[in-house]
Simulated scan of single mutants.
Amino acid sequence: MSATTVAGAAKAAVTKSSPSTNTVYLFRHIQTSQVLVSLKNSVEKQSLKQITDVTRRPPHVRPDHWHPLVAIQGFSRPQDALSFHNSLRDHQLNLHSVKVADKEHMTQPRRLRAPQEMNQVDSTLVKMVELLNTHPTIKANQGKGLHILWERDGVRKQILEKEGLSLLEGIEHGDLIVKRGRDIANA
């Protein structure tokens, strides 16, 4: 057996054994409502770079402060999950610059601006729904095979009703099972 055959078999085994490569996770900070997007089922230090305002960025990751918000499973290929992750992460990176560019927002006192700048849950979930509805691969399949696990069903209903949004018909919904406050059990 050649070295390339062995390497190819090892790569295929890794891909089959790690189903999380086709899952995108969103985590929210329990105190500030900041949101991080990840391809892993936990938050790592490098994920903090998504918070571009260094005055609002936590200095290190405290796992007990980051709670799973949403897990999106069932992307047909890891490349689809990665492109969706990157699109959502780019939205996160631009959130702060959009708020700073708003003159009306900047005229408010800092004590009033800070909570508004850190509250990213609603805008991120709205963007997630928009991206799911416009992602070419998901749209082509009408959402079939995609499964969204929500922290609470009330979060899903609130976002969809508040913004008047709807998801593709084929997308299934479920509850995200979390143990010990932060460990995802079913994704």
Results as ranks from 00 to 15, higher is better:
S47F: 03
V121Y: 04
H135E: 14
S33L: 09
E161R: 13
R152H: 14
D153C: 04
I72F: 06
K49G: 05
G164T: 09
K162W: 00
T107L: 11
E44N: 06
I177N: 10
P59E: 08
I184M: 07
A140Y: 10
M118I: 00
H60Q: 12
K99M: 15
I171N: 06
Q116D: 10
V24N: 02
D64E: 14
H29G: 02
Q108R: 15
S42H: 13
A114Y: 07
P115R: 10
D64M: 08
I159N: 03
A12P: 00
S47P: 01
K99Q: 15
R77W: 04
S87Y: 01
S20E: 14
H96K: 07
M1T: 12
E130A: 10
E151K: 12
Q120L: 09
L93F: 14
A185H: 11
R89N: 09
N133A: 12
H96W: 13
A101D: 12
A101V: 01
S17Y: 06
Q108N: 12
V70D: 05
S42F: 12
Q73P: 01
S18M: 10
G8R: 13
V178N: 07
S47C: 12
K157V: 06
D175W: 00
V35F: 07
R77L: 14
T15H: 07
H85T: 09
T5C: 10
E117W: 03
L95M: 14
K157D: 14
K157S: 13
S38K: 03
E130T: 09
L112Y: 10
R56F: 07
V37Y: 08
T32G: 03
Q142S: 15
H60A: 12
P68M: 05
T52F: 01
L146R: 04
P19E: 10
G174F: 10
L160H: 05
L69K: 04
T15C: 07
E130K: 13
S87W: 02
R111Y: 12
T4E: 15
P136Q: 07
V24P: 01
P19Y: 00
R111H: 14
F84I: 05
P136C: 02
G145C: 09
I177M: 09
H67S: 10
V24K: 02
A13T: 09
P109T: 08
Q108T: 01
L176R: 06
H29P: 04
Q116P: 00
R77A: 15
L132G: 06
N41D: 15
R182P: 00
G164F: 05
R111Q: 11
L167H: 04
I30H: 08
N22G: 11
D64V: 08
L95A: 05
H173L: 07
V126C: 08
W66A: 01
V37C: 15
D153I: 05
I184G: 04
H91V: 08
N94T: 11
T32Q: 07
V121F: 02
H135L: 02
K127V: 04
P63F: 02
S2W: 06
T32Y: 09
T107Q: 15
L95T: 04
V37N: 05
N119Y: 11
V6D: 04
K103A: 13
A71H: 06
